[in-house]
Amino acid sequence: MSVRGLLLAAVLALLLAPPTAASERHPTLAELEHEVMCPTCHQLLELSDAPIADRIRAFIQARIEAGDTKSEIKQRLVSEFGEAVLAAPPTRGFELLAWLLPILGLAGSGLVIALLAWRWTRLKPEAAKPHLVNGFSELDPKLARRLDEELALLDR
């Protein structure tokens, strides 16, 4: 039950990645400031007031005014300032590994755990117990009394 819920949630989360379609054609500076980094100070553009950050901002503003789409702007930024200008690596080529490894790792170890857990549930406990609807009858009465005493002791 909860496994299914978990999977459902993971799938849901995957589907809910940042809504890109709407802002693709008309990007804003504020939006790009969250997705672009100042390559020398390793901070989001939004946080940085280094001279190069101001240059990047001016560059983006000019491209927005020229009517570029978001991916066009990003492409130009990369060729101008290097790949480190993108705050998250692109999802292709070598950089795809950055995204894929955690997901594959999670899926792989999830599978291993699921298999292990399944195997652990198959392990039967000490001998099958045919008529154990109520276990009291099986116990030696003296032992049962000691057990109840022990339990009462725990309650103090």
């Binding site: 390793h42 480190a84 705050a87 998250a88 955690p102 997901i103």
Partner: peptide, 14 residues
């Protein structure tokens, strides 16, 4: 290359 907030925010959701 940079790995910044958008990357971690994605995995925070996942």
């Amino acid at each position: 290359i940079s790995i910044g907030p958008p990357y971690y925010n994605f995995f925070l959701r996942i």
